[in-house]
Design a protein around this nucleic acid. Structure first.
Lengths: 255, 255
DNA sequence: TGTGCAATGTAACATACGTTATTGATCGGC
DNA sequence: GCCGATCAATAACGTATGTTACATTGCACA
């Protein structure tokens, strides 16, 4: 539905000009598609022609083994861009599926060429997006390899929380949270049963309130400590610029 | 010592002109540094000024938790390029250390600007390198989240094998292999003891011959099957171009 | 306003992998 | 050509997490 999350996120990092805004605005309204929850947008082996920008809704990237074991390798939140690889690599090595209903804008090769030619701030901002995604992927490697179930879950929730906040999608200490325990299991490499146990433990410790499709984080600092969460990998600041005016203590820890 | 591995690797993917060769050649001989085995090249929190190209030797990217738990998040082999992020992100979110003695060439921002302006094939090739690294990172996420110890180890060995072969660093069915069992443990998220058990099992199954600092893979196809290895994520082909003339059956499987 | 299916919760039991400890091989440096 | 340190190998034992099974809740849709 809206470009707001992308712009808000990118502007944390570079100032975009009015012309930049106009370019992004046009690109994100020209070719929009809508998907139902729990369907695939792109499948492994395909060769999509466009880059996808998530306008609204949640999605994930996942890979699957022949025997059905499935790993979510990243989450896409509103404002995220998937598959810059599309113009270079021959085929997708993973699939992308929706969690909720999702609207996406298709960004053409042509659009990126025009941006590359005349809009360096946008280029920089897109690079930032790409590099942060790579950093997130490394951090997931760390989580899966070294963190315990509890740490892993706390870490993932912190990450999602901060990314949502950056996109302007948190309200106070709570946010929409459409992931099922099965989704969390596929993302953390844990079984569904153990995800349930782990969430109970986080609840019992007062670190999260998770009910229905809403998550509340009453004390982000404590959750971060439980997940051994160091926010540096999200690179939410740049050249001395901090996250936001009016930061809370936990904002500062995150910046 | 040599640019050969980089050029060989990139040329699998794009044809480079004589001028491109000259550019790369000059960049990789201007500012070369040498490191001893088992030292850090860059540390988390630093802000390096250059991109590093590995001319010879093996290195790794790793992250560490406060309590010392350590995860290798990727390996750098000769011809690999690290840290394109250097020009955009504020500070390193991980460290890079050497395994063997290593020679690197420092590539300046200026070099990249010149390449971007006038050498599109090199730009494309560097993009390919970056995107394949991202794909590898996703595959590691998959491995750590879903594969068993045996599958994980077999998968990692397949990956290293194919990357070495692409760089021209295999001889017949064997190659140099300077990783210790401790390195493998840090990369697979297993304990050293279990790495040892797992290697024994691979040996007993005749899938690998690993002795001293040499690895032999008598039957790559079988090792690939043991690791549920699908080489698509390495994107070793492009626009219908295949790996090599004179492919063996397992080459074909890898392409 | 039920009714059916997906999601969540719980329990009992199984196991892949971790931990600690010790021994024997390898190897670079004096 | 020894010596200390690192690396590899093996064993005994511990545990975090997986598996199977089933009950409960919640919610979309008839």
């Amino acid at each position: 539905m809206s470009l707001a999350s992308l712009v808000r996120k990118l502007e944390q990092f570079v100032r975009l000009s009015p012309v930049d805004h106009a370019i992004l605005n046009r690109a994100s309204t020209e070719r929009v598609r809508h998907f139902a929850p729990r369907v695939d947008i792109v499948r492994e082996g395909e060769k999509p022609k466009d880059v996808h920008l998530i306008l609204s809704g949640w999605a994930y990237r996942y890979k699957q083994l022949e025997d059905g074991r499935r790993q979510v390798v990243s989450f896409f939140l509103p404002g995220d861009i998937c598959d810059v690889n599309v113009f270079i690599l021959r085929e997708m090595d993973h699939s992308i599926g929706t969690i909720t209903a999702v609207s996406i804008a298709d960004l053409s090769r042509d659009f990126f060429d025009r941006v590359a030619a005349g809009h360096p701030r946008i280029v920089t901002a897109f690079w930032w997006e790409t590099l942060v995604n790579a950093a997130i992927q490394r951090e997931w490697t760390m989580s899966l390899g070294q963190r315990t179930a509890l740490e892993r879950m706390a870490h993932l929730l912190c990450e999602i929380w901060l990314r949502l906040r950056l996109a302007g999608l948190t309200q106070g200490d709570s946010c929409d949270f459409p992931l099922t325990q099965g989704d969390l299991a596929d993302a953390t490499g844990l079984s569904k049963v153990h995800v349930n146990r782990t969430l109970q433990e986080l609840r019992a410790d007062g670190l999260i309130v998770l009910k229905g499709k809403t998550l509340a984080v009453p004390n982000l600092d404590r959750l971060m400590r439980a997940g051994l969460f160091n926010p540096n990998y999200l690179h939410m600041d740049h050249e001395g610029r901090q996250l936001d005016a009016g930061m809370t203590p936990s904002d500062a820890a995150a910046g």
